[in-house]
Simulated scan of single mutants.
Amino acid sequence: MNSPENESLTALLEKLEPLLAGGRLDNVVDLLSLLSDGVDIADNALVEKLAGLFEGVVAVGWEGGMALRMAHTELQLDPRPAHFRSLYALLRQPDTLLGLMLVLRTLQIIGGRIRTGTLPPDTIVE
């Protein structure tokens, strides 16, 4: 008489058989080994750096999304058509200029790195 443990083990082995035959289970074992190595390497300083990086990325994404939503809502609520005079008035505001300076400075740094070749070669599109 088969016990429930043997039946469940037999069912598991039947499900794993195609993975074993195709060698795909080796990939899972390699992934688990890589994860184990990552846990061994990770110390508190690395975890704190990664957490700070993640927090920074989430904050930038959140702020960018909120700014986009606010701008979209303001444009929908403003019935006046867009024209060059309203664009010029927007460009004269210090907050707009600060945002443009940030974007342009970021593009300048990226351009400088592309010129000096400090970016990986596969990211440069010709």
Results as ranks from 00 to 15, higher is better:
I110R: 04
S33G: 14
P79W: 01
A71M: 12
G61N: 08
L34H: 13
P94D: 03
N2W: 09
L34M: 14
P94T: 02
I110F: 03
L34F: 10
A67M: 14
L12A: 07
D40S: 11
Q76T: 12
R69K: 15
T116C: 09
K49N: 13
L91W: 09
L16E: 03
A42E: 08
T118D: 10
A42M: 09
A82T: 14
I41R: 13
K49V: 14
L16R: 02
G61C: 08
M66F: 10
L97K: 07
Q76I: 14
G117T: 03
I124Y: 02
A21S: 09
M101R: 12
F54Y: 15
G117N: 02
G23W: 00
G22S: 08
L20F: 06
Q76K: 14
P120F: 01
I110H: 03
A71D: 06
M70V: 14
L77R: 09
S8Y: 08
I109T: 12
G38A: 03
R115S: 08
V57I: 15
G61D: 09
R113E: 13
N27H: 13
L102N: 08
D37L: 10
E63M: 14
L16H: 01
L12F: 02
R92G: 01
F54T: 15
R92F: 01
V60L: 14
M66Y: 11
L102K: 12
A45C: 05
V103P: 00
R69D: 13
I124S: 01
K49W: 06
G65W: 04
L75V: 11
P81C: 00
L90N: 11
L35D: 05
D95F: 07
T96E: 01
T106G: 08
G64D: 07
L19E: 07
P121F: 01
L19Q: 07
L87E: 05
V28L: 06
R105I: 05
S86L: 06
A89V: 03
L13T: 02
Q93M: 06
L53P: 01
A89C: 04
L20A: 07
D95N: 11
T73L: 15
D43E: 09
L97H: 04
I124V: 07
L16Q: 03
T106M: 07
L13Y: 04
E126K: 14
